[in-house]
Measured scan of single mutants.
Amino acid sequence: MQIFVKTLTGKTITSEVEPSDTIENVKAKIQDKEGIPPDQQRLIFAGKQLEDGRTLSDYNIQKESTLHLVLR
């Protein structure tokens, strides 16, 4: 499924993921596309910071959901 990751600069990254993918996994995909190390990434969805060990389905993230990427 496709999800969108919006950066603070307003850029939107499209990523191909599975509901069973972990947040860590998603951060790795963002690193592949943007070159941002996962340890600098914080992903936010519905006002919550997403934890690395959890999966997209844990957070009820569905296709075409938009996550927000904040850098630390």
Rank of each mutant, 00 (worst) to 15 (best):
M1P: 03
M1E: 03
M1T: 03
Q2E: 09
Q2N: 11
Q2R: 15
I3L: 06
I3G: 01
F4H: 09
V5I: 15
K6H: 12
T7N: 05
T7A: 05
L8E: 14
L8T: 13
L8C: 15
L8A: 13
T9F: 13
T9P: 04
G10I: 02
G10W: 04
G10N: 05
T12W: 10
T12M: 12
I13V: 06
I13N: 02
I13M: 07
T14W: 08
T14Y: 09
T14C: 09
S15A: 15
S15M: 15
S15E: 13
E16K: 09
E16F: 13
V17F: 12
E18A: 12
E18M: 14
E18F: 14
E18Q: 13
P19K: 07
S20E: 10
S20P: 03
S20M: 10
D21A: 07
D21G: 03
D21Q: 05
D21E: 09
T22A: 04
T22W: 04
T22C: 03
I23Q: 01
I23P: 02
I23C: 02
E24M: 13
E24F: 15
E24V: 08
E24I: 11
N25K: 14
N25H: 11
V26C: 02
V26E: 01
V26M: 05
K27H: 02
K27M: 12
A28Q: 13
A28D: 06
A28H: 12
K29T: 07
K29P: 00
I30S: 02
I30M: 03
Q31F: 15
Q31C: 13
Q31R: 14
Q31K: 09
D32R: 12
D32C: 08
K33R: 10
K33I: 14
E34I: 15
E34N: 10
G35F: 04
G35W: 03
G35Q: 05
G35K: 06
G35H: 07
P37D: 08
P38A: 15
P38M: 15
D39Y: 12
D39T: 10
D39S: 13
Q40N: 09
Q41R: 02
R42T: 15
R42Y: 13
L43M: 04
L43G: 00
I44A: 05
I44F: 15
F45Y: 12
F45V: 02
A46L: 12
G47K: 05
G47A: 04
G47V: 02
K48A: 09
Q49H: 12
Q49A: 11
L50R: 00
L50P: 00
L50D: 00
L50S: 01
L50M: 08
E51S: 07
E51Y: 07
E51V: 08
D52M: 05
D52E: 09
G53W: 14
G53A: 10
G53R: 09
R54H: 11
R54P: 04
T55I: 06
T55M: 10
T55A: 06
T55Q: 07
T55C: 04
L56A: 02
L56P: 00
L56G: 01
S57I: 08
S57K: 12
S57R: 12
S57T: 08
D58H: 12
D58I: 03
D58W: 13
Y59S: 02
N60E: 07
N60W: 04
I61G: 01
I61Q: 00
I61R: 01
Q62W: 07
Q62M: 11
K63V: 07
K63P: 15
K63T: 12
K63G: 13
K63Y: 07
K63A: 15
E64W: 14
E64C: 11
E64F: 14
E64S: 11
S65F: 09
T66I: 13
L69P: 00
L69G: 00
L69Y: 02
V70K: 08
V70W: 09
V70T: 08
L71Y: 09
L71E: 07
L71G: 06
R72A: 13
R72C: 10
